[in-house]
Design a protein around this nucleic acid. Structure first.
Lengths: 208, 208
DNA sequence: ACCTGAACACCGTTCAAGT
DNA sequence: ACCTGAACACCGTTCAAGT
């Protein structure tokens, strides 16, 4: 009869993230994860493929945490006003900052890894959609997406490491106001038309 | 009598960068670098401290390559017009892209590492200076610096990995035009005064 | 001053074997 | 199906020793 399952992918990724939080990304190893789970290193390979896959799994978890408070693609909430796309973008930036605070070490993975995972593609498609709704010409959408997301991630990473300790939570909202101002003004030259109406914006297809 | 010196810091860092180019950042190890230099791993420790120092050394080399074609702080060349700061910023972005092309694997280190090295502080001070000259209020300078440099690095990293292979070199200038447009427009709300005159802008002190 | 050699506790991944 | 055990080629870093 088949053995009872001792571990699964979710437990492995959760443990890997814990180790990153405790000991830094360099502490994340197959041996170390297995040790915490009370299991042999080789037991992991049935669930994660290899170490690269393990790190990609951590990235997926972080992306999911970031997108938690962001309005889903179809929702009108936060997207209805002509400038609703800025709100959605700022929700992502806030999510990124919150995750950077919770997992300052692991957060670096978001900037270092190519992010060709399913979750990363999903986030990219989401931002593409936002920019299209904002009236950005299709030929500029991928470029602006890269500029915006990298800038937001970079600011979240920076804000979490420095200065953060000696500031009350509310004060750091300045960063977001600045980012919102910058993005709103910076994107203006690329808007070939005013923001799309909520009604005709919901029937756009997938991209990538 | 003292032994003849077989290796020095420069040779070690050059070799480490070569390995990163050939085998990726994960291939960079004390053992591997020593092997290429025909020397014992422990011979490196007289010159680099430890592995973190080795990676920081690679970052320093990349930063130096990026800043190569950028007008030095005191120079009026590229800074004289009222919008000269954009030219300087774009020169940095171009330098970043060139380095990302030459060292696509090692380039990731620039985004992943905290960059508290001397060279990184120097680059930061340089951009701070540019923004001040552009008339940005002092309270917004560090924030905007983080947004700008992270965005430029992110775009350089992205542009080097994807799409690059199947585009003639000239076409990618679109990316820079877009970044220049975005930055110029985005920064506008933060400019409390028109750009400083070249003459009274040269006598500002260090920061940090 | 600069490098070697042996050593230690780790690491990613394999293979064959157990239940 | 799921995990173990032994094994391999690696890794970062130490210490004492050679020239």
């Amino acid at each position: 009869m088949p053995r009872p399952k001792m571990i699964d992918r979710t437990a492995i990724l959760r443990t890997a993230l814990e180790i990153a939080d405790d000991d830094g990304v360099t502490g994340v190893s197959m041996h170390a994860v297995a040790r915490r789970l009370g299991v042999t290193p080789m037991a992991l390979y049935r669930h994660v493929g290899n170490k690269a896959d393990l790190l990609d799994g951590i990235v997926e978890r972080l992306l999911a945490e970031i997108m938690q408070g962001v309005p889903p693609p179809g929702e009108t909430a936060g997207l209805q006003g002509p400038e609703g796309w800025v709100d959605a973008l700022m929700a992502m930036a806030r999510g990124a900052r919150a995750v950077a605070r919770r997992h300052p070490a692991a957060f670096a993975l978001l900037l270092s890894r190519p992010a060709a995972t399913a979750g990363a593609r999903q986030v990219r498609a989401y931002v593409h959609d936002l920019l299209r709704r904002a009236g950005v010409g299709a030929e500029h959408v991928p470029r602006l997406e890269r500029i915006l997301t990298t800038a937001a991630l970079g600011m979240a990473a920076g804000g979490a490491s420095e200065r953060f300790a000696h500031h009350p939570p509310g004060v750091l909202d300045d960063d977001f106001r600045a980012l919102a101002t910058f993005v709103t003004a910076g994107i203006e030259p690329f808007r070939s038309r005013p923001a799309a109406e909520p009604d005709d914006a919901s029937d756009r297809g997938r991209d990538d």
